[in-house]
Design a protein around this nucleic acid. Structure first.
Lengths: 270, 270
DNA sequence: ACGCGAATCTCATATTCTGAGAAACTCGCC
DNA sequence: GGCGAGTTTCTCAGAATATGAGATTCGCGT
């Protein structure tokens, strides 16, 4: 319903329907009964019922005590297999933890997918307000520090292709909403070596990010530090950026991308 | 193929096939080409192709540069939504981190599903050999400390029902393989207040776990500490158990299950 | 340039899914 | 303790849907 229209030349109705069921359950924060599922998706109850039973057999959904349905833990298994192939999260975690200890703010690890970034890990400092981000969630590139960090260090061509696909949704009065502004911003990011999201996604939230580069110096992910603007002040950015650079450097070494020796190419000015 | 036979009265062929594709990709540690998928699953290439295209549109699979397929990050999204409903992982993490700092061994957080336990989080100490567990993976109850911890504190009836479904697969020479032995072991677990897996799942690996109890004093999860037998010695168990109890108590408080005041009911003898 | 394996596409066919509706539950309420 | 509205479960004939043989195109190695 609220989702991308199932356009495209190949179609398997049953799959589209099954996934719309999963979407529905995924977006609801309370389990749903058969009747609710059926009516929300305009499926006839028998059909919805059959799908739910099959999905349940596969443990893609499970029923709560009172017979309502929610997403099943098989999905969690699949999901973790999916990112396991990247192997990045496990190796990055200790470095992220150190980063959080140093900065006392929340750290995120994110990957680029299509024109969005996907958060694959989050570490929060002990005593901080909980951030609303959900691991696994995705945000557009243009309004996030991680997005800009990756984009800025991608080869011109790939970056341009992604920028072309950005839809420039506006989130706050500071959100970048034109290709031109984004290009300028990326240029700036390249120069200083780190990306900043200055309340462009959420009022009062400032983030700063640097890319994780692989052996070919291609960005494969980005690490960010986020916190309330009054704590993450402009003056502190260079210092945080340094912690970030140290962190991603550690990750790169652990991933075997670079040997531990040489210094980082991206420079932090100011 | 290697998977549970798609028995059950309700059937949607397309879904069974789609999930078998996901299973295949999930179990392969290298991306697979269309031809490989088709032949492994005995699907005709057109069919496999159509499925893969549809799955790709839904981002359930993605293609690598050379045109091969692997699991897509949408699954990661779904998976995290699935456990988000439990809300447990986020809240438990700081406590697990403290536990790891105290014990210097790996901690796991696991849920019970059917007759298996599913690991929903893992924290490793800074300098330790990597454990092979994958978050999202599942193991049988009978040979894991977390499984026994949950089982032991479940109401007699539910526990019995689960025990009935255990298939008692043997992993090491110490694995419990009879209902009787398991019952005795659970009794012992209840008495001392914590569960032990003494190389019953993996040679040389000793684990100890206690359940996380909700407001109704029902176990909803378990936390374990695992390490090589030579470090996690029998003498150390009571001390580790105490750290564990403190940890789960903290989790329960954070989840709002119990007020911070009163002491824990499960007693650690010895 | 050529050839082989792999991927993509087309389309007529029958297999598979569909959905109306009937039956069996579940509660809440009297 | 039983009535009734709202759900869930089940059955089955019909028809839309997925299927797979095969033709076509692609991509790469020689």
């Amino acid at each position: 319903m609220r989702d991308a229209p199932p356009q495209g030349t190949y179609k398997v109705q049953a799959l589209d329907r099954a996934f719309s069921v999963l979407d529905l359950l995924g977006e609801s924060d309370t389990p749903l009964g058969l009747a609710q599922v059926a009516s929300s998706l305009q499926l006839h109850k028998s059909t919805a019922h059959r799908f739910l039973m099959v999905l349940e057999r596969h443990r893609m959904v499970e029923r709560t005590g009172n017979g309502k349905f929610r997403l099943g833990l098989r999905l969690f298994d699949y999901g973790n297999r999916a990112i396991e192939q990247y192997d990045l999260r496990d190796r990055a975690q200790p470095h992220l933890r150190r980063l959080v200890a140093e900065t006392e703010e929340t750290a995120h690890l994110a990957l680029l997918e299509a024109a969005r970034v996907i958060y694959i890990d989050k570490i929060e400092p002990a005593r901080s307000v909980r951030m609303i981000t959900r691991i696994g969630a995705s945000n557009p590139v243009h309004c996030t520090s991680v997005g800009k960090a990756i984009l800025a260090f991608l080869p011109e061509e790939r970056a341009a292709e992604i920028v072309r696909r950005v839809r420039f949704e506006r989130f706050t009065h500071r959100t970048i909403t034109t290709t031109e502004a984004l290009r300028t911003e990326l240029e700036k990011t390249r120069r200083r070596g780190y990306a900043v999201d200055d309340e462009e996604f959420e009022e009062g939230l400032r983030c700063i990010a640097v890319p994780v580069l692989d052996a070919q110096r291609q960005p494969v992910a980005a690490v960010s530090v986020s916190g309330p603007s009054f704590r993450v002040t402009a003056q502190k950015l260079p210092s945080i950026a340094n912690h970030l650079l140290q962190c991603v450097r550690g990750i790169s070494v652990d991933m075997g991308y670079v040997s531990a020796g040489r210094g980082s190419r991206v420079a932090v000015s100011a």
